[in-house]
Design a protein around this nucleic acid. Structure first.
Lengths: 209, 209
DNA sequence: GTCTATATCTTGATAGAC
DNA sequence: GTCTATCAAGATATAGAC
Protein backbone atom coordinates (compact mmCIF):
# COMPACT_ATOMS: atom_id res chain seq x y z
CA UNK A 1 0.00 0.00 0.00
CA UNK A 2 1.47 3.33 -1.06
CA UNK A 3 2.04 5.61 1.84
CA UNK A 4 3.07 9.17 2.52
CA UNK A 5 5.24 10.17 5.40
CA UNK A 6 4.27 13.22 7.43
CA UNK A 7 5.49 14.71 10.66
CA UNK A 8 4.29 12.02 12.99
CA UNK A 9 2.05 9.65 11.13
CA UNK A 10 2.02 7.28 8.22
CA UNK A 11 -0.99 7.95 6.08
CA UNK A 12 -2.69 5.95 3.39
CA UNK A 13 -3.62 7.45 0.08
CA UNK A 14 -7.16 8.20 1.07
CA UNK A 15 -6.08 9.63 4.34
CA UNK A 16 -3.53 11.82 2.64
CA UNK A 17 -6.17 13.11 0.26
CA UNK A 18 -8.52 13.98 3.09
CA UNK A 19 -5.80 15.79 4.94
CA UNK A 20 -5.00 17.71 1.82
CA UNK A 21 -8.67 18.65 1.46
CA UNK A 22 -8.72 19.93 5.02
CA UNK A 23 -5.51 21.84 4.53
CA UNK A 24 -6.74 23.40 1.32
CA UNK A 25 -10.00 24.38 2.98
CA UNK A 26 -8.06 25.95 5.81
CA UNK A 27 -5.95 27.90 3.33
CA UNK A 28 -9.06 29.19 1.63
CA UNK A 29 -10.77 30.25 4.86
CA UNK A 30 -7.58 31.82 6.18
CA UNK A 31 -7.20 33.77 2.96
CA UNK A 32 -10.77 35.01 2.93
CA UNK A 33 -11.42 35.64 6.58
CA UNK A 34 -8.04 35.71 8.27
CA UNK A 35 -6.85 33.92 11.37
CA UNK A 36 -8.99 36.16 13.54
CA UNK A 37 -12.32 34.85 12.34
CA UNK A 38 -11.41 31.51 10.80
CA UNK A 39 -13.33 29.06 12.94
CA UNK A 40 -12.63 25.38 12.92
CA UNK A 41 -16.22 24.77 11.93
CA UNK A 42 -15.82 27.00 8.88
CA UNK A 43 -12.77 25.06 7.77
CA UNK A 44 -14.46 21.74 8.33
CA UNK A 45 -17.51 22.85 6.36
CA UNK A 46 -15.33 24.00 3.48
CA UNK A 47 -13.58 20.64 3.53
CA UNK A 48 -16.85 18.75 3.65
CA UNK A 49 -16.26 17.12 7.02
CA UNK A 50 -17.31 17.68 10.59
CA UNK A 51 -15.01 19.57 12.86
CA UNK A 52 -13.83 16.60 14.94
CA UNK A 53 -12.50 14.90 11.83
CA UNK A 54 -9.77 17.49 11.73
CA UNK A 55 -8.35 16.14 14.96
CA UNK A 56 -7.54 12.88 13.29
CA UNK A 57 -4.92 14.80 11.31
CA UNK A 58 -3.99 17.68 13.57
CA UNK A 59 -3.58 17.91 17.29
CA UNK A 60 -4.95 21.44 17.39
CA UNK A 61 -6.29 24.34 15.40
CA UNK A 62 -2.94 26.07 15.75
CA UNK A 63 -1.09 23.13 14.28
CA UNK A 64 -3.33 23.16 11.23
CA UNK A 65 -2.89 26.88 10.72
CA UNK A 66 0.86 26.59 11.12
CA UNK A 67 0.95 23.82 8.54
CA UNK A 68 -0.94 25.97 6.04
CA UNK A 69 1.27 28.98 6.53
CA UNK A 70 4.40 26.87 6.26
CA UNK A 71 3.17 25.25 3.05
CA UNK A 72 2.54 28.70 1.66
CA UNK A 73 5.97 29.99 2.56
CA UNK A 74 7.70 26.95 1.20
CA UNK A 75 5.60 27.10 -1.96
CA UNK A 76 6.64 30.67 -2.62
CA UNK A 77 10.27 30.01 -1.92
CA UNK A 78 10.30 26.91 -4.12
CA UNK A 79 8.73 28.73 -7.02
CA UNK A 80 11.13 31.63 -6.76
CA UNK A 81 14.27 29.55 -6.38
CA UNK A 82 13.25 27.29 -9.25
CA UNK A 83 12.71 30.28 -11.50
CA UNK A 84 16.12 31.61 -10.52
CA UNK A 85 17.79 28.25 -11.05
CA UNK A 86 16.56 28.15 -14.62
CA UNK A 87 18.43 31.33 -15.42
CA UNK A 88 21.78 31.47 -17.07
CA UNK A 89 24.63 31.97 -14.62
CA UNK A 90 25.69 35.32 -15.98
CA UNK A 91 22.23 36.83 -16.12
CA UNK A 92 22.48 40.41 -14.86
CA UNK A 93 21.41 40.59 -11.22
CA UNK A 94 18.68 43.12 -11.94
CA UNK A 95 17.15 40.68 -14.40
CA UNK A 96 17.29 38.03 -11.72
CA UNK A 97 15.45 40.33 -9.35
CA UNK A 98 12.75 40.83 -11.95
CA UNK A 99 12.41 37.09 -12.34
CA UNK A 100 12.09 36.77 -8.59
CA UNK A 101 9.44 39.51 -8.54
CA UNK A 102 7.45 37.71 -11.20
CA UNK A 103 7.78 34.30 -9.55
CA UNK A 104 6.76 35.69 -6.17
CA UNK A 105 3.69 37.36 -7.62
CA UNK A 106 2.70 34.28 -9.60
CA UNK A 107 3.08 32.15 -6.51
CA UNK A 108 0.77 34.53 -4.68
CA UNK A 109 -1.90 34.81 -7.31
CA UNK A 110 -1.71 31.70 -9.44
CA UNK A 111 -0.44 28.89 -7.27
CA UNK A 112 -3.04 28.38 -4.58
CA UNK A 113 -4.55 29.87 -1.47
CA UNK A 114 -1.62 28.64 0.60
CA UNK A 115 0.71 31.41 -0.41
CA UNK A 116 -1.89 34.12 0.09
CA UNK A 117 -2.94 32.63 3.41
CA UNK A 118 0.70 32.76 4.45
CA UNK A 119 1.36 36.42 3.70
CA UNK A 120 -2.00 37.56 4.98
CA UNK A 121 -1.61 35.82 8.32
CA UNK A 122 2.10 35.83 8.96
CA UNK A 123 1.78 39.02 10.98
CA UNK A 124 -0.99 37.59 13.14
CA UNK A 125 0.85 34.54 14.33
CA UNK A 126 1.21 33.97 18.07
CA UNK A 127 4.76 34.31 19.27
CA UNK A 128 5.64 30.62 19.64
CA UNK A 129 4.42 29.89 16.14
CA UNK A 130 6.39 32.84 14.87
CA UNK A 131 9.51 31.50 16.52
CA UNK A 132 9.10 28.09 14.91
CA UNK A 133 8.60 29.71 11.53
CA UNK A 134 11.56 32.02 11.72
CA UNK A 135 14.04 29.66 10.10
CA UNK A 136 11.91 29.35 6.96
CA UNK A 137 11.38 33.06 6.74
CA UNK A 138 15.05 33.85 7.15
CA UNK A 139 16.05 31.33 4.52
CA UNK A 140 13.73 32.94 2.00
CA UNK A 141 14.91 36.36 3.01
CA UNK A 142 18.47 35.31 2.29
CA UNK A 143 17.52 34.37 -1.27
CA UNK A 144 16.54 37.97 -1.87
CA UNK A 145 19.43 39.34 0.12
CA UNK A 146 21.86 37.48 -2.11
CA UNK A 147 20.21 38.88 -5.23
CA UNK A 148 20.51 42.41 -3.95
CA UNK A 149 24.11 41.90 -2.92
CA UNK A 150 24.96 40.49 -6.31
CA UNK A 151 23.34 43.48 -7.97
CA UNK A 152 25.35 45.83 -5.80
CA UNK A 153 28.61 43.98 -6.29
CA UNK A 154 28.14 44.03 -10.03
CA UNK A 155 27.55 47.76 -9.93
CA UNK A 156 23.97 47.53 -11.09
CA UNK A 157 22.53 49.37 -8.09
CA UNK A 158 22.56 53.05 -7.41
CA UNK A 159 25.24 54.23 -5.02
CA UNK A 160 24.22 54.75 -1.42
CA UNK A 161 21.09 52.63 -1.64
CA UNK A 162 20.21 50.98 1.67
CA UNK A 163 20.04 47.33 0.66
CA UNK A 164 17.92 46.09 3.51
CA UNK A 165 15.36 48.87 3.28
CA UNK A 166 15.15 48.53 -0.49
CA UNK A 167 14.75 44.77 -0.35
CA UNK A 168 11.98 44.87 2.22
CA UNK A 169 10.14 47.67 0.47
CA UNK A 170 10.12 45.65 -2.74
CA UNK A 171 8.95 42.47 -1.03
CA UNK A 172 6.38 44.50 0.87
CA UNK A 173 4.92 45.91 -2.31
CA UNK A 174 4.46 42.34 -3.54
CA UNK A 175 3.12 40.96 -0.28
CA UNK A 176 0.52 43.70 -0.03
CA UNK A 177 -0.99 42.86 -3.43
CA UNK A 178 -3.38 40.24 -2.01
CA UNK A 179 -5.11 43.12 -0.22
CA UNK A 180 -6.25 44.74 -3.42
CA UNK A 181 -5.39 42.87 -6.58
CA UNK A 182 -8.35 40.49 -6.70
CA UNK A 183 -10.76 43.42 -6.43
CA UNK A 184 -8.95 45.44 -9.04
CA UNK A 185 -9.33 45.21 -12.75
CA UNK A 186 -5.59 44.98 -13.27
CA UNK A 187 -4.57 41.87 -15.25
CA UNK A 188 -1.92 39.75 -13.59
CA UNK A 189 0.51 40.31 -16.42
CA UNK A 190 0.11 44.05 -16.05
CA UNK A 191 0.70 43.80 -12.33
CA UNK A 192 3.84 41.78 -12.92
CA UNK A 193 5.13 44.09 -15.62
CA UNK A 194 4.51 47.16 -13.48
CA UNK A 195 6.16 45.60 -10.44
CA UNK A 196 9.23 44.55 -12.43
CA UNK A 197 9.42 47.95 -14.00
CA UNK A 198 9.14 49.90 -10.76
CA UNK A 199 11.67 47.66 -9.10
CA UNK A 200 14.21 47.79 -11.88
CA UNK A 201 14.01 51.53 -12.40
CA UNK A 202 13.84 52.14 -8.69
CA UNK A 203 17.03 50.25 -8.02
CA UNK A 204 19.12 50.67 -11.12
CA UNK A 205 22.26 52.73 -11.27
CA UNK A 206 22.04 53.08 -15.01
CA UNK A 207 19.09 55.30 -15.93
CA UNK A 208 18.70 53.58 -19.28
CA UNK A 209 18.68 50.04 -17.90
CA UNK B 1 -19.03 71.85 31.79
CA UNK B 2 -16.95 71.33 28.67
CA UNK B 3 -18.15 68.41 26.63
CA UNK B 4 -17.10 66.45 23.60
CA UNK B 5 -19.56 65.14 21.06
CA UNK B 6 -19.15 61.58 19.81
CA UNK B 7 -21.25 59.30 17.70
CA UNK B 8 -24.08 58.75 20.12
CA UNK B 9 -23.14 60.20 23.46
CA UNK B 10 -22.17 63.42 25.11
CA UNK B 11 -19.14 62.87 27.28
CA UNK B 12 -17.55 64.87 30.00
CA UNK B 13 -13.86 65.58 30.09
CA UNK B 14 -13.02 62.75 32.41
CA UNK B 15 -15.15 60.38 30.47
CA UNK B 16 -13.53 61.44 27.23
CA UNK B 17 -10.11 60.83 28.72
CA UNK B 18 -11.03 57.36 29.87
CA UNK B 19 -12.43 56.49 26.49
CA UNK B 20 -9.25 57.73 24.90
CA UNK B 21 -7.24 55.55 27.27
CA UNK B 22 -9.30 52.53 26.31
CA UNK B 23 -9.00 53.32 22.63
CA UNK B 24 -5.24 53.79 22.88
CA UNK B 25 -4.89 50.53 24.77
CA UNK B 26 -6.91 48.77 22.10
CA UNK B 27 -4.68 50.24 19.41
CA UNK B 28 -1.62 48.97 21.20
CA UNK B 29 -2.97 45.46 21.70
CA UNK B 30 -4.26 45.30 18.13
CA UNK B 31 -0.86 46.35 16.84
CA UNK B 32 1.04 43.84 18.93
CA UNK B 33 -1.22 40.85 18.85
CA UNK B 34 -3.65 41.44 16.02
CA UNK B 35 -7.40 41.17 15.94
CA UNK B 36 -7.15 37.39 16.17
CA UNK B 37 -5.81 37.24 19.69
CA UNK B 38 -6.70 40.64 21.11
CA UNK B 39 -8.95 39.81 24.00
CA UNK B 40 -11.15 42.35 25.66
CA UNK B 41 -9.48 41.57 28.95
CA UNK B 42 -6.06 42.40 27.50
CA UNK B 43 -7.32 45.74 26.29
CA UNK B 44 -8.96 46.53 29.60
CA UNK B 45 -5.78 45.62 31.50
CA UNK B 46 -3.69 47.84 29.23
CA UNK B 47 -6.11 50.67 29.85
CA UNK B 48 -6.12 50.13 33.60
CA UNK B 49 -9.80 49.28 33.88
CA UNK B 50 -11.89 46.16 34.18
CA UNK B 51 -13.40 44.68 31.04
CA UNK B 52 -16.99 45.71 31.79
CA UNK B 53 -15.98 49.36 31.94
CA UNK B 54 -15.46 49.24 28.20
CA UNK B 55 -19.16 48.71 27.69
CA UNK B 56 -19.87 52.12 29.10
CA UNK B 57 -18.22 53.53 25.98
CA UNK B 58 -18.74 50.85 23.37
CA UNK B 59 -21.65 48.58 22.70
CA UNK B 60 -19.37 45.73 21.66
CA UNK B 61 -15.82 44.59 21.10
CA UNK B 62 -16.33 45.02 17.38
CA UNK B 63 -17.40 48.61 17.77
CA UNK B 64 -14.24 49.39 19.71
CA UNK B 65 -12.02 47.74 17.13
CA UNK B 66 -13.77 49.55 14.33
CA UNK B 67 -13.27 52.84 16.09
CA UNK B 68 -9.54 52.18 16.46
CA UNK B 69 -9.09 51.23 12.83
CA UNK B 70 -11.07 54.24 11.68
CA UNK B 71 -9.01 56.58 13.86
CA UNK B 72 -5.89 55.12 12.34
CA UNK B 73 -7.09 55.54 8.80
CA UNK B 74 -8.24 59.07 9.41
CA UNK B 75 -4.99 59.90 11.19
CA UNK B 76 -2.94 58.77 8.23
CA UNK B 77 -5.10 60.61 5.76
CA UNK B 78 -5.02 63.79 7.81
CA UNK B 79 -1.27 63.74 8.13
CA UNK B 80 -0.77 63.14 4.43
CA UNK B 81 -3.26 65.74 3.26
CA UNK B 82 -1.87 68.32 5.67
CA UNK B 83 1.64 67.72 4.40
CA UNK B 84 0.40 68.13 0.84
CA UNK B 85 -1.53 71.27 1.69
CA UNK B 86 1.62 72.92 2.97
CA UNK B 87 3.27 72.56 -0.41
CA UNK B 88 3.46 75.25 -2.98
CA UNK B 89 0.84 74.94 -5.68
CA UNK B 90 3.28 74.38 -8.50
CA UNK B 91 5.39 71.79 -6.75
CA UNK B 92 6.20 69.04 -9.26
CA UNK B 93 3.83 66.11 -8.81
CA UNK B 94 6.68 63.67 -8.21
CA UNK B 95 7.84 65.82 -5.32
CA UNK B 96 4.31 65.76 -3.97
CA UNK B 97 4.32 61.99 -4.15
CA UNK B 98 7.53 61.91 -2.15
CA UNK B 99 5.99 64.15 0.47
CA UNK B 100 3.01 61.81 0.64
CA UNK B 101 5.33 58.81 1.00
CA UNK B 102 7.15 60.48 3.85
CA UNK B 103 3.97 61.59 5.61
CA UNK B 104 2.42 58.15 5.28
CA UNK B 105 5.50 56.48 6.75
CA UNK B 106 5.77 58.99 9.57
CA UNK B 107 2.10 58.49 10.37
CA UNK B 108 2.73 54.75 10.56
CA UNK B 109 5.85 54.85 12.66
CA UNK B 110 5.80 58.10 14.61
CA UNK B 111 2.21 59.06 15.17
CA UNK B 112 0.72 56.36 17.35
CA UNK B 113 -0.39 52.76 17.41
CA UNK B 114 -3.66 53.69 15.71
CA UNK B 115 -2.21 53.88 12.24
CA UNK B 116 -0.27 50.64 12.60
CA UNK B 117 -3.26 48.90 14.11
CA UNK B 118 -5.27 50.03 11.10
CA UNK B 119 -2.98 48.71 8.38
CA UNK B 120 -2.21 45.50 10.24
CA UNK B 121 -5.85 44.63 10.82
CA UNK B 122 -7.63 46.11 7.84
CA UNK B 123 -7.39 42.82 6.01
CA UNK B 124 -8.85 40.89 8.91
CA UNK B 125 -12.04 42.86 9.25
CA UNK B 126 -15.34 41.04 9.06
CA UNK B 127 -17.33 41.88 5.97
CA UNK B 128 -19.86 44.26 7.51
CA UNK B 129 -17.11 46.28 9.16
CA UNK B 130 -15.24 46.36 5.89
CA UNK B 131 -18.32 47.70 4.15
CA UNK B 132 -18.74 50.50 6.68
CA UNK B 133 -15.10 51.45 6.30
CA UNK B 134 -15.05 51.51 2.55
CA UNK B 135 -15.90 55.18 2.19
CA UNK B 136 -12.90 56.26 4.27
CA UNK B 137 -10.58 53.96 2.39
CA UNK B 138 -11.77 55.16 -0.98
CA UNK B 139 -11.42 58.78 -0.01
CA UNK B 140 -7.80 58.24 0.98
CA UNK B 141 -7.19 56.25 -2.16
CA UNK B 142 -8.43 59.17 -4.21
CA UNK B 143 -5.83 61.45 -2.63
CA UNK B 144 -3.12 59.23 -4.06
CA UNK B 145 -4.96 58.71 -7.32
CA UNK B 146 -5.06 62.43 -7.87
CA UNK B 147 -1.32 62.73 -7.24
CA UNK B 148 -0.55 60.04 -9.77
CA UNK B 149 -2.88 61.58 -12.33
CA UNK B 150 -1.27 64.97 -11.86
CA UNK B 151 2.14 63.42 -12.34
CA UNK B 152 1.00 61.74 -15.52
CA UNK B 153 -0.71 64.83 -16.88
CA UNK B 154 2.39 66.88 -16.27
CA UNK B 155 4.46 64.35 -18.15
CA UNK B 156 6.50 63.34 -15.13
CA UNK B 157 5.62 59.66 -15.36
CA UNK B 158 7.03 57.11 -17.72
CA UNK B 159 4.85 56.32 -20.72
CA UNK B 160 2.68 53.23 -20.51
CA UNK B 161 2.81 52.97 -16.75
CA UNK B 162 -0.33 51.41 -15.28
CA UNK B 163 -1.40 54.07 -12.80
CA UNK B 164 -3.54 51.91 -10.58
CA UNK B 165 -1.01 49.10 -10.30
CA UNK B 166 1.83 51.53 -9.65
CA UNK B 167 -0.12 53.42 -7.00
CA UNK B 168 -1.11 50.31 -5.10
CA UNK B 169 2.36 48.81 -5.28
CA UNK B 170 3.80 51.98 -3.78
CA UNK B 171 1.21 52.14 -1.01
CA UNK B 172 1.69 48.42 -0.40
CA UNK B 173 5.42 48.84 0.08
CA UNK B 174 4.66 51.44 2.75
CA UNK B 175 1.87 49.51 4.43
CA UNK B 176 4.01 46.42 4.73
CA UNK B 177 6.74 48.24 6.67
CA UNK B 178 5.10 47.61 10.06
CA UNK B 179 5.81 43.92 9.50
CA UNK B 180 9.56 44.38 9.58
CA UNK B 181 10.74 47.89 10.31
CA UNK B 182 10.61 47.80 14.10
CA UNK B 183 12.78 44.66 14.14
CA UNK B 184 15.23 46.05 11.65
CA UNK B 185 18.13 48.30 12.34
CA UNK B 186 17.10 50.73 9.63
CA UNK B 187 16.66 54.29 10.92
CA UNK B 188 13.34 55.88 10.06
CA UNK B 189 14.99 58.58 8.01
CA UNK B 190 16.80 55.97 5.97
CA UNK B 191 13.57 54.11 5.40
CA UNK B 192 11.88 57.29 4.26
CA UNK B 193 14.75 58.30 2.01
CA UNK B 194 14.90 54.87 0.43
CA UNK B 195 11.15 54.74 -0.10
CA UNK B 196 11.09 58.20 -1.70
CA UNK B 197 14.02 57.30 -3.85
CA UNK B 198 12.62 53.99 -5.08
CA UNK B 199 9.27 55.59 -5.77
CA UNK B 200 10.64 58.57 -7.63
CA UNK B 201 13.07 56.63 -9.76
CA UNK B 202 10.56 53.87 -10.27
CA UNK B 203 7.94 56.22 -11.62
CA UNK B 204 9.84 59.00 -13.29
CA UNK B 205 9.97 59.56 -17.00
CA UNK B 206 13.14 61.58 -16.76
CA UNK B 207 16.04 59.32 -15.71
CA UNK B 208 17.85 62.24 -14.09
CA UNK B 209 14.93 63.41 -12.02
C1' DG C 1 -18.40 55.89 35.82
C1' DT C 2 -16.49 51.77 37.29
C1' DC C 3 -16.58 47.74 39.81
C1' DT C 4 -17.97 42.65 41.34
C1' DA C 5 -20.51 38.95 40.17
C1' DT C 6 -22.63 36.36 36.95
C1' DA C 7 -25.16 35.00 32.83
C1' DT C 8 -24.69 33.64 28.12
C1' DC C 9 -22.62 32.24 24.17
C1' DT C 10 -19.15 30.60 21.23
C1' DT C 11 -15.82 27.40 19.99
C1' DG C 12 -11.95 24.45 20.54
C1' DA C 13 -11.42 19.91 21.95
C1' DT C 14 -12.64 15.04 23.67
C1' DA C 15 -15.34 10.55 24.25
C1' DG C 16 -17.14 6.97 22.31
C1' DA C 17 -20.28 4.81 18.83
C1' DC C 18 -20.07 2.98 14.25
C1' DG D 1 -11.71 7.50 9.61
C1' DT D 2 -15.65 10.08 10.56
C1' DC D 3 -19.60 10.94 13.01
C1' DT D 4 -22.93 12.48 17.13
C1' DA D 5 -22.99 14.16 21.48
C1' DT D 6 -20.90 16.56 24.95
C1' DC D 7 -17.45 18.92 27.71
C1' DA D 8 -14.55 22.62 29.22
C1' DA D 9 -12.65 27.00 28.71
C1' DG D 10 -12.68 31.44 27.71
C1' DA D 11 -14.71 35.33 25.93
C1' DT D 12 -18.33 38.75 25.41
C1' DA D 13 -21.90 40.94 27.56
C1' DT D 14 -25.30 42.21 31.37
C1' DA D 15 -27.10 43.19 36.18
C1' DG D 16 -26.79 45.67 39.84
C1' DA D 17 -24.10 47.61 43.76
C1' DC D 18 -21.49 51.59 44.94
Amino acid sequence: MPTVETASRVLTDKSARTQERIRAAAAQVLTERGMATARLGDIAAAAGVQAPAIYYYYASREELIEDVIRQGQIGTETRVTQALDELDEQTPALDKICVAVEAHLRALHELSDYTTAAVRNVGQMPTEMRARMQADQRRYGRVWKRLFEQARDQGELREGLDLRAAQLLVIGALNWTPEWWADSSVPLDTLIATACDLTRRGLAADPRS
